[in-house]
Design a protein around this nucleic acid. Structure first.
Length: 209
DNA sequence: AGCCAGGCCAAGC
DNA sequence: GCTTGGCATGGC
């Protein structure tokens, strides 16, 4: 489907490369990216950054440190990202399970077995932290592409993912950038109340709500 | 000053 | 099976 690529290049041209995920610490990229993926669940990146900065300040981007820190203390540190009790538990379990595993063995099912990690978080970790060609689907993806006319309104996660993976070159960098651009577009124009007037996808969009 | 964010899970129909 | 409520902070 050429439309998917047309939309990609339109968004890229409009917004430029998004540079996800910018590492702030960089000592343990796999861990740092995974933490960001967990912390950003239903949470704005602004708030996630504060939590990440706290973690870095405490030198906590470390499997060992996170495994040993008392959970109540972790609560305080990641509090700005919200849902801190659940996220602390998830981080604890994630660290415990990934600490000594061969990263080649980390797949979707393995990640989904960790409580608090669902499909989107698992796929984000696979794509951004492990560089696997997995397309990440989120609420914006469904909203934008159902409005454009490519998806059913209530399309299920895995179906949506298949549409993108079947119709795009299986390219890690393309997948990374496309998802990031989708998020950007969702924030700027394709909001719940869409701003269709000046939308860069206006000409490609079936619905023009 | 309400609505929403780069979801997920468990409970309830 | 599908829908709903709870989780929590901070920005707009």
């Amino acid at each position: 489907m050429k439309l998917l690529e047309d939309i990609y290049y339109t968004l890229l041209n409009e917004y430029g490369y998004q540079k996800w995920w910018p590492l702030k610490d960089g000592k343990e990229p796999f861990l740092e990216i995974s933490l960001g993926a967990i912390l950003t669940q239903n949470t704005s990146w602004k708030n996630v950054e504060k939590a990440l900065e706290n973690l870095i300040k405490e030198n906590l981007i470390s499997f060992e440190k996170l495994e040993n820190i008392p959970e109540e203390l972790l609560h305080q540190i990641i509090k700005p990202a919200g849902f801190y009790k659940r996220k602390s538990k998830t981080i604890k379990e994630f660290v415990k399970k990934t600490k000594n595993i061969d990263r080649k063995k980390i797949d979707r099912d393995f990640l989904l077995s960790i409580k608090g990690i669902g499909k989107e978080t698992a796929d984000s970790i696979l794509l951004y932290a492990l560089e696997k060609p997995v397309f990440v689907v989120d609420a914006y993806t469904k909203r934008i592409f159902s409005r454009v006319g490519i998806l059913e309104k209530n399309a299920d996660y895995d179906e949506v993912q298949i549409v993108f993976e079947k119709n795009l070159p299986k390219d890690v960098n393309l997948f990374k950038e496309y998802h990031a651009l989708i998020v950007e577009h969702g924030k700027r124009f394709c909001r719940k109340k869409p701003l269709c007037e000046n939308c860069p996808l206006k000409d490609l969009c079936q619905k023009n709500i």
